[in-house]
Amino acid sequence: MVPKTRRRVFFLAFFFAFFLGRLAAAGAATPGWSLLDEVYDLAEKNYPGFLDREALEAGAVRGLVDSLGDPYGEYIAPGDLPFFTSSLNEEYTGVGVVFQEVEGQIVLKEIVPGSPAARAGVKPGSVLVAVDGRPVTGLSLEEIGRLLEGTAGTYVEMTVTLPGSSARRSYYLRREVIRPPVTGVHLFAGQVGYLYLRSFPYWAPEEMEAALAWLEDRGARGLILDLRGNPGGYLDAALETASLFLLPGKPVVQLLGRDNKVTLLQSRGPGQDLPVVILVDRDTASAAEVLAGALQANHAALLIGTRTYGKGAVQTIFNLSNGGALKLTTAYFLTPGGRAIDGEGLKPDIEVAGRQEQLDRALQVLRAQIAPSLVAAVPAGK
């Protein structure tokens, strides 16, 4: 797995709809684009260098998208689409290792639980030496990632030196579709559950439901939902996750589309009745803001932390006829009460700076809510 040095924040209403029409059809003028055709004809007749029609068309498309003023708009070339899709879905085909370069060595920083590497006993801290017998020295992280990734069901040999030793060991691993976990759970003293949600891939609600069940089975009476650093993901994932907390029919988010058309999305249930505190910060964005805003507006949670990022734009991905895709903003989201988030963010109910301080305050608030009443514990007349 190649570590992501730049996380794209995507908030999607739909995935891979069809884009109707192209900017320019090869060899024919497109009505309404006479200036573009004129420039191309002049270049074709007068430019002494080679004209690559495909590259010129892609450049024209990028220029059109850039000129829209859409900060999230993007043209994805056909060759970049597989990586884009993998990055968007946060899943990939490989063996389940996360690595980084440390002083010239490729160190396995993390082994994805349940992955082929984990089942084979590969240890974090091991140094990657070779892939299929090819030394990785001098290769970029992207090149190493491509060697490890491949078609599901195929095999790859990974040679490492064990942590704290120069001894080498080779693992023959079968590639699988890898879904890195997006949740983490813990039960604090006082029956306060803690649930961290990293992002919103399409399987996030399933993990969230399992995490909530784990906490419930252990007697959690309150919940801290940590959305700090969560950059968002799929709209449907945010809607389904909100439905785990809100009763059916409760408003989750408003979508403001073309011609000021407003669509209200509602909870599908089942909901739950634990007191909830949500931790947010300036990197809580997009779908994470939808979830936090929905629970705050429905008085189902208190927000503690700092103002959120403020990404309230919805993107749709359209397939293009050349095998590429267009990512385009198609709507903006509002809180259930109609408050815009884009460029503004959510203001927490209790503003606290500092990660540990935020967690401490959340624990304090929840423990106060779920502690037995001292008055009720005193017999009548005492």
Score class of each variant (00 low, 15 high):
residue 241 T to K: 04
residue 136 V to L: 06
residue 321 S to I: 13
residue 38 E to H: 14
residue 331 A to T: 00
residue 24 A to L: 06
residue 342 D to R: 07
residue 1 M to Y: 08
residue 119 R to V: 07
residue 326 L to F: 12
residue 314 V to S: 01
residue 2 V to M: 07
residue 145 G to P: 07
residue 285 A to Y: 02
residue 196 Y to W: 12
residue 270 P to R: 08
residue 50 F to N: 06
residue 319 N to S: 14
residue 91 E to L: 09
residue 313 A to S: 11
residue 113 P to Y: 11
residue 257 G to S: 10
residue 55 A to L: 13
residue 32 G to K: 09
residue 323 G to N: 13
residue 193 G to L: 03
residue 283 D to Q: 10
residue 129 V to T: 02
residue 325 A to L: 07
residue 360 D to C: 00
residue 377 A to R: 08
residue 78 P to D: 09
residue 187 L to G: 01
residue 24 A to P: 00
residue 214 W to N: 05
residue 71 P to K: 08
residue 182 V to H: 03
residue 150 G to T: 02
residue 354 G to Y: 01
residue 197 L to A: 07
residue 292 A to I: 05
residue 196 Y to A: 10
residue 233 G to T: 05
residue 205 P to F: 10
residue 190 G to L: 03
residue 134 R to V: 15
residue 12 L to Q: 05
residue 299 H to A: 13
residue 341 I to G: 02
residue 7 R to Q: 14
residue 323 G to H: 13
residue 138 G to Q: 10
residue 266 Q to H: 12
residue 377 A to I: 00
residue 154 T to R: 09
residue 266 Q to C: 10
residue 26 A to G: 09
residue 323 G to C: 12
residue 280 V to H: 06
residue 210 A to I: 07
residue 345 G to F: 07
residue 230 N to I: 03
residue 275 P to Q: 02
residue 364 Q to E: 15
residue 20 L to D: 11
residue 142 E to N: 14
residue 118 A to F: 13
residue 373 S to K: 01
residue 373 S to Y: 02
residue 237 A to S: 15
residue 212 L to F: 08
residue 82 P to W: 11
residue 283 D to V: 02
residue 234 Y to D: 05
residue 160 V to G: 00
residue 68 L to M: 14
residue 343 G to S: 13
residue 18 F to S: 14
residue 324 G to Q: 03
residue 62 R to T: 01
residue 88 L to R: 05
residue 26 A to Q: 14
residue 86 S to E: 14
residue 307 R to Q: 15
residue 293 G to F: 01
residue 241 T to G: 11
residue 67 S to R: 09
residue 137 T to P: 00
residue 272 Q to W: 06
residue 231 P to K: 06
residue 14 F to K: 13
residue 310 G to V: 04
residue 313 A to K: 05
residue 52 D to S: 14
residue 243 S to G: 12
residue 91 E to N: 15
residue 214 W to G: 01
residue 128 L to Q: 00
residue 148 L to D: 07
residue 306 T to G: 09
residue 276 V to T: 14
residue 42 L to W: 15
residue 213 A to E: 15
residue 215 L to A: 04
residue 19 F to D: 13
residue 199 S to L: 04
residue 369 Q to H: 05
residue 285 A to F: 03
residue 26 A to I: 13
residue 250 K to M: 12
